[in-house]
Design a protein around this nucleic acid. Structure first.
Length: 802
RNA sequence: GCCCGGGUGGCGAAACUGGUAGACGCAUGGGACUUAAAAUCCCAUGGGAGGCAACUCCCGUGCAGGUUCGAAUCCUGCCCUGGGCACCA
């Protein structure tokens, strides 16, 4: 022990990172694995600041799981890549006056270095970047498949427009109605022709399949929420001029209480239904609404505004004429863009009716409740032949009745919208479409893919509202593939979420340039065995990936429809009580910590902060505890290398079996913090028993290998093993040894702990009570009173009730 | 407003299915080693009261109730906090 070398992580880690690469340790046989295990983590966006501890936390947690499975005998494929297209990169490049095409490769190089340094078990042969033409060729191919299948289509849609940036903004870039880069410029609404993917066609399946997925509950809940299924009915309100206003409602039972109607200001029937004397007011209101951006219209001021169109529609239940209004609290993109307003039973309608003095008719009675009564627990009134029915029965009967007259049908509505994939930006894959005056939009022939993103020195958006790509004349004008006439390329690029919606399909097949994914490889590795990532992608990324997979399956390109049968969401690393972000200036870059303490220590420290699936608070203080632990393991292993073999004392042996059991279970369930605590307890035990021998240390090193891979490798070698530790078997345990011979039983009197006794495992209740009553300290509380009841939990506790 | 989490020592956190609350680690205090410091090692550490002492007792898991022999854990109501959604008809 005297001559043990000191633990120098930097040297150990560099050595093993080199050896892993030289010996291809982390590269499974992708063609003929015996037990394939696809261990996927969400790939990073390579920011200019470099990988931060939040990334490292996520990757470490995923990597531990992959290494654990490797030790359990699987051929683990653990790829990594870069999600490098997108507005983020582009805006950052703009802000520092650089070009993303130059910036991104630098960022990726930094990330690559950091990812190697922390010791991830990555198969670098299969690295990918979404900005690589070899990758986005297939992103474009995917678009074409959807286009051919009618799943990609064009539609005019409202977008956020910043008059200062002179470009379209994503919803996330609008902060309370103002541009994120121009805090004093109000964002406006513009209508542009956009490309959409028909995700809503899969709404029901996306929802239904959730039941069968092994996912974190919170993630499932968010997806359910987002899809937002609601059952109700479509009702028809006829107008004197012959036009029919169709509304969606979840409360057809309240139709007798519909005293007015509201259309979204953009509703196509507005012109037709506007009376001449109201036209000036109506037009003024519509203009006003248009200058509001979409986000602030939804989130901002909640005071209701609206104007009367000057015309009426017939309530299909009462037959009465009710006024038709427009108001911006009704949204064109949900339902039919029109509602029947039932002020007595809807808070929004109630507020609106009060403000504009519209009639309020109560049709649901519920004891002790004041209007508006929103609950569905009540009983119908003022509803003709339906009086006295419960809301639920009433709804059904009323829809039936109106359906008989052709004025209603049951309807399911989703909140989910079709996915707008157009971006009037530069830094993304060009949408592979050529517009021809004769043929319309024509797909670029697959043999001409990729449509390479041309290098444009000035990629800044201009005030035309057209993507910068339109300025590149020799790129922009191109022959129509169908008729040969002069056409124009689509100048929008696609959403970054499309890049990431299929990357997991590409990883196993990165070396093929003639197919997006190889059928054999895909059959071998997919669907992904375990996917680990952050809940910030609970909705968009995961939903889009599921949709793309589902659609590809239907088009015959895949053999499965759910890409991620098992998903676990990790928590968030907090710093100084707040989420890490550049704007708060509390982003921690791990490099300095790794340099000072070693990657193994930082990995374990991050995992020890708290439960992996909940996250933790990053502080510098605790890290020494982990390093001390690894120093002890280092010393003990070197001691063991020199020591003679001798049997383990029973207490150490028992602790060893308990530790193997706990670390196995906790690692499988991603409870890394408690697994680490268990290993610490074991090391404390070995030290206090002064028993640093091979049989005590070898199993520990294997348990530790997923957490501190470099150190485990080094010490495994020091104990004389020539092979990597990752070929060793995961240690087993014997439950009987773990349980041990004697047990300590808690003795309670009237539920309060009064003493502890030691008895052999399996002692009967009578004997335990006898032993307990023999103890003076316990008898004192029983105090001669008769035993009323005895509760005995085998080998744990006895409660004497007196 | 709606849907998920979470509230436990000075701090990060443990606690199986209701069964010894605070494992493990940090920090702190004391001691050993050292000329000294660092490192390392040993001991103590939820709060309070009593005792020279080994020790003994009381209180304690956001708050107020309840169920139970027994509640951090289950139930009811409330408070605080993190996240998601948000005029979705």
């Amino acid at each position: 022990m005297k001559n043990a070398p000191t633990y120098e992580p930097a040297a150990v880690e560099a050595r093993w990172q080199r050896l892993w690469e030289e010996r291809h340790v982390n590269e499974p046989d992708v063609d003929r694995p015996r037990r394939p295990f696809y261990n996927l983590m969400m790939f990073p966006y390579p920011s200019a600041e470099g990988l931060h501890v939040g990334n490292m936390f996520a990757f470490t947690g995923a990597d531990i799981y992959g290494r654990f499975k490797r030790l359990a005998g699987y051929d683990v494929f653990e790829p990594i890549g870069f999600d490098a297209f997108g507005i983020h990169s582009e805006n950052y490049a703009l802000s520092i006056g650089a070009h993303p095409a130059k910036l991104i490769p630098q960022n990726i190089a930094t990330f690559r270095r950091q990812l190697r340094r922390f010791g991830g078990m990555f198969d670098w042969r299969h690295e990918l970047s979404t900005t690589d033409p070899r990758y986005y060729k297939w992103t474009q191919w995917l678009f074409l498949q959807f286009f051919k299948a009618g799943l990609a289509f064009r539609k005019r849609a409202a977008v956020n427009w910043c008059p200062a940036c002179k470009t379209v903004l994503a919803n996330e870039q609008v902060i309370n109605g103002y541009c994120e880069r121009h805090p004093d410029v109000r964002v406006e609404q513009r209508f542009l022709e956009q490309w959409f993917f028909a995700i809503t066609r899969y709404a029901e399946r996306l929802l239904r399949n959730l039941d069968a997925l092994d996912w974190s509950e919170s993630t499932v809940a968010m997806q359910r929420n987002w899809i937002g299924r609601s059952e109700g009915a479509e009702l028809a309100f006829e107008t004197p001029g012959g036009a029919v206003i169709t509304v969606f409602t979840t409360r057809p039972d309240t139709v007798f209480g519909a005293t007015y109607m509201v259309l979204a200001p953009e509703h196509p029937l507005v012109d037709e239904l506007t009376a001449d004397e109201q036209r000036p007011v109506v037009n003024a209101y519509r203009r006003e609404v248009q200058t509001k951006d979409i986000v602030s219209r939804k989130v901002g001021e909640k005071t209701k505004t609206g104007v009367f169109l000057g015309s009426y529609a017939r309530n299909p239940a009462t037959g009465e004429a009710i006024p038709v209004w427009i108001a911006d609290y009704v949204l064109m993109e949900y339902g039919t863009g029109a509602i029947m307003a039932v002020p007595a039973h809807d808070e929004r309608d109630f507020e609106f009716a009060q403000q504009f003095k519209l009639p309020i008719v109560q049709v649901v009675r519920l004891q002790g409740q004041a209007l508006p009564i929103v609950s569905e627990e009540g009983v119908l009134m003022h509803s003709g032949q339906f009086n006295g029915l419960t809301c639920r029965d009433g709804a059904q009967r009323i829809v039936q009745w109106l359906a008989g007259k052709g004025l209603a049908k049951a309807q399911v509505q989703y909140r989910l919208h079709d996915w707008c994939i157009s971006r009037q930006r530069y830094w993304g894959p060009p949408i592979p479409i050529i517009h021809c005056d004769r043929c319309g939009p024509v797909g670029v022939p697959e043999k001409d893919l990729p449509v390479e993103l041309p290098f444009i020195e000035d990629f800044r958006p201009d005030d035309t509202g057209v993507s910068p790509l339109a300025r590149h004349r020799e790129w922009y004008f191109v022959k129509c593939p169908q008729c040969g006439a002069l056409g124009r390329r689509e100048t929008d690029v696609s959403d970054t979420f499309l890049d990431s919606a299929w990357y997991f399909l590409r990883y196993p097949s990165t070396e093929f340039d003639d197919r997006p994914w190889d059928p054999q490889r895909t059959k071998t590795w997919l669907p992904v065995t375990t996917y680990i990532g952050g809940n910030e992608h609970a909705v968009l990324h995961l939903l889009y990936s599921r949709f793309v997979t589902m659609a590809l399956r239907e088009l015959g390109h895949l053999h499965f429809e759910e890409p991620f049968p098992k998903l676990r969401a990790h928590g968030l690393i907090i710093k100084d009580g707040a989420k890490m972000s550049k704007s708060r200036g509390n982003v921690v870059i791990p490099d300095a910590y790794i340099q000072k303490w070693g990657a193994d220590t930082v990995r374990m420290y991050l995992m020890f902060l708290g439960p992996f699936q909940e996250g933790g608070d990053f502080r510098d203080e605790g890290i020494t505890g982990i390093r001390r632990f690894l120093d002890k393991v280092w010393a003990l292993a070197h001691e063991a290398a020199a020591a003679k073999a001798r049997p383990l004392p029973p207490a150490v042996e028992q602790k060893l079996h308990q530790t193997i059991k706990k670390v196995t279970a906790d690692t499988e369930s991603l409870n890394y913090n408690t697994a680490i605590a268990a290993m610490m307890e074991y090391v404390n035990e070995v030290r206090s028993a002064d028993c640093g021998v091979r049989s005590a240390m070898e199993p520990l090193l294997v348990l530790l290998a997923p957490y501190a891979p470099h150190l485990a490798e080094e010490l495994w070698g020091a104990l004389g093993h020539g092979e990597t530790i990752f070929t060793a078997p995961w240690p087993g345990y014997d439950d009987r040894i773990a349980a041990g011979g004697d047990v300590e039983i808690a003795v309670q009197v009237n539920g309060k702990l009064r003493g502890l006794i030691n008895v052999p495992r399996g002692t009967s209740q009578d004997d335990v009570v006898k032993r307990a009553l023999a103890d003076a300290g316990i008898r004192k509380f029983v105090d001669g009173k008769p035993l009323r009841k005895v509760v005995y939990v085998q080998d744990r506790l006895v409660n004497l009730v007196v």
